[in-house]
């Protein structure tokens, strides 16, 4: 018992931090999937780009962590709008296989470009002094950085939730997810909405990639290696939902950490089996509609 409780707290804490990174990196994919039905397997590239930009701005130009993060988010959001207008928009009506292949092509190009510019090894995020060390919490020491990630994750989730539920823009997104044709017929400019949502999703992914660079390390295979986890978060959460991915990320992050901690031999296998059972029970995800 004396060992059980600290282990549990440790699993919860590290699982939460991991879950927040997964949530930030994947929530944009859920919304774009729900809005446009676009199977964007290259979503992880936005997170990877956010990570690389943050680290490079800090290392090469000596920018602080938070300003670098902000610049990375804006840059990735801007780049994702350009991509959306020039390339993705051509494929909204294409078949699923075309979208899949197109985005795999983007992932491959991004992987090669990242290797070309930064080399194959993982990049290290130099944390500012304020985020180094530990903070005491209920009689134990926790890494400040992970606590910061958890707080940022929750804050973003709350902000997103309020934005989607309480603002006019959020209402427009919800309307378009429910019924795109009807939303268009009442005068919502769905093309513009798509672009803005795509930018928002890209920016959120960049935030996840940048802020979580010490949890999911930034290296060229990032977008491929974590693709299955991003897709799990979206599919388990339910497409087009904001709430769903949050709870799905919590389940996956904490569950994965717990399994790897408690059963290091079969941990990852256990997660996949749980996933199959969950989706047999609810094929449309936790918060999705069949």
């Amino acid at each position: 018992m004396s060992q059980f409780l600290p282990a549990l707290v440790s699993i919860l804490f590290h699982g939460l931090a991991y879950a927040m990174v997964l949530y930030l990196a994947a929530v944009g994919l859920s919304v774009t999937m729900g809005l446009m039905g676009f199977a964007n397997l290259a979503h992880g590239v936005f997170a990877m780009a956010g990570g690389y930009l943050t680290i490079t701005l800090m290392a090469a130009l000596g920018v602080g962590f938070l300003p670098a993060l902000a610049v990375a988010i804006l840059a990735v959001a801007a780049a994702s709008v350009v991509l959306e207008r020039t390339l993705y928009a051509r494929l909204y009506t294409a078949s699923e296989i075309d979208q899949v292949l197109f985005t795999i092509g983007l992932v491959y190009m991004a992987t090669a470009a990242a290797t070309f510019f930064w080399g194959p090894s993982p990049q290290h995020l130099a944390l500012p002094a304020a985020l180094q060390g530990d903070i005491p919490l209920v009689g134990r020491q926790f890494p400040t950085y992970r606590a910061f990630v958890i707080v940022m994750g929750f804050a973003t989730a709350l902000g997103l939730w309020a934005g989607i539920e309480r603002t006019r823009f959020g209402a427009m997104i919800r309307a378009a997810v429910d019924n795109r044709a009807m939303a268009r017929s009442v005068g919502i400019d769905t093309d513009r909405l798509f672009s803005l949502t795509f930018a928002l999703g890209g920016g959120l992914a960049a935030l996840g990639g940048g802020i979580g660079a010490e949890i999911l390390s930034i290296h060229p295979a990032y977008a491929i290696e974590h693709l299955v986890y991003f897709l799990i978060v979206v599919a388990v959460g339910g497409m087009g939902s904001i709430r769903g991915p949050f709870f799905a990320a919590l389940l996956l992050g904490i569950g994965d950490t717990a399994c790897k901690y408690l059963f290091p031999e079969i941990g990852a296998v256990f997660i996949y089996i749980a996933l199959f059972i969950l989706l047999l029970w609810r094929p449309a995800g936790l918060f999705g509609r069949a």
């Binding site: 199977a39 497409m239 989706l279």
Partner: peptide, 8 residues
């Protein structure tokens, strides 16, 4: 079907 099938 769709993205869920892809993920599975």
């Amino acid at each position: 079907s769709g993205l869920t099938l892809l993920m599975l």
